[in-house]
């Protein structure tokens, strides 16, 4: 075949390299953004606030003591130098010492991060199929009762505060029905069943937060395809509607839908901050809230950077899926 159509044989590898090139460019741009984000985070939390040395020692400290501590903490060096050192520490996965816990930030995070990833994983496993089903059902029955009810429900759900969902969840499932614990106890010794039980309410709350947005975006992505010319063509040919949805629309909609799912999962990050705190879940987000309360800047900065990196990663995945699924974006 390649001999008969030499132009095709040459085109295939070029197409792949174009994609690689595009994906590489998106990844590079995400890294650049992350670098700029780190400048913002460090400027706000490291440079702008008052003198950390003065604060540590209190009002009664002599100027000499303050100067000595400032030198020890490296606060007497110019801002850009401090930034580079700080960034270097983060890149070497050694962002320094937590001021409050008095142990390396790396160790604290290493303990908490897996818990948060587990919570996010459970939520994604439940939320994604649910949201896709809701979005696709609404799109297929567009304008009908199902669509109107779902659209009103999701529109309301996106504006409900996470702590209301969590509070009602606790009220119903732990206080009234006594089914689930209201505080998440997660440890390596707990059995899988116990872990799932104690994660149930946090996962339920997070799912509520994520599903609405994801379902709305899925519906929009599906409808964009249903409105395309080829669907009308298939309808005119007499193809049954179920077949059109499955065989004609789905292959084209899958890219935009995965894109929507990845973008909506970023709502997890904000939701987790409230949810982990309410349920006392030992994850990264509740750690970050504690860091704010105790003004533990090294810990706070590392947590913030991990959250920003996770967010940019989700956006990057969404972008790459969009490129892979839509040949027009490769131009």
């Amino acid at each position: 075949m390649a001999g008969a159509f030499p132009q095709f044989a040459r085109k295939a590898p070029r197409g792949a390299s174009v994609i690689l090139h595009l994906v590489g460019r998106r990844a590079a741009s995400a890294l650049l953004t992350l670098l700029l984000v780190s400048i913002v985070v460090f400027t706000i939390s490291g440079l702008l606030p008052g003198d950390a040395a003065q604060e540590t020692l209190g009002q009664s400290a002599t100027p000499a003591q303050v100067a000595a501590l400032r030198h020890e903490m490296g606060l007497d060096r110019p801002g850009p130098v401090r930034y580079v050192q700080w960034l270097g520490g983060i890149l070497r996965a050694d962002p320094g010492q937590s001021l409050v816990a008095n142990m390396p930030v790396r160790d604290i995070i290493a303990e908490r991060l897996p818990n948060s990833l587990m919570l996010a994983g459970f939520t994604a496993v439940i939320a994604v199929p649910l949201a896709l089903a809701m979005g696709i059902a609404a799109a297929v029955h567009r304008g009908g009762k199902v669509d109107r009810v779902l659209s009103l429900a999701t529109l309301s759900m996106v504006a409900v505060p996470e702590f209301l969902v969590a509070t009602l969840g606790v009220l119903v499932f732990s206080v009234k029905l006594l089914w689930l614990p209201s505080i998440a106890l997660v440890s390596s010794e707990a059995s899988l069943g116990d872990t799932i039980r104690s994660c149930a309410l946090p996962v339920m709350t997070l799912t509520f937060v994520v599903v609405a947005q994801m379902a709305r975006m899925t519906r929009a992505a599906m409808i964009a395809q249903l409105d395309a010319g080829y669907v009308e063509m298939a309808e005119l040919k007499g193809v049954p509607f179920g077949r059109i949805v499955l065989w004609h629309v789905m292959p084209n909609a899958i890219g935009p839908i995965v894109n929507a799912a990845a973008l909506s999962l970023s709502y997890l990050l904000g939701g987790a901050i409230i949810v982990e705190t309410i349920f006392n879940f030992p994850g990264l987000a509740s750690l970050m809230v504690n860091a704010v309360t105790s003004r533990d800047m090294p810990l706070l900065q590392s947590c913030a950077m991990i959250f920003c990196a996770a967010y940019l990663l989700l956006v990057l995945i969404a972008d790459v899926v969009a490129i892979l699924s839509n040949p027009r974006q490769r131009a």
Binding site: S45, L48, P49, L269, G270, I273, I274, V289, V292, Y311
Partner: peptide, 23 residues
């Protein structure tokens, strides 16, 4: 635009928490 693109890449709750901690 570049500045705003950077700021929008920080999840809003994270951004607000960092500012509350600082100020």
């Amino acid at each position: 635009s570049r500045t705003m693109d950077t700021l929008i890449s920080i999840p809003s709750k994270v951004f607000a928490l960092v500012m509350v901690a600082a100020f």
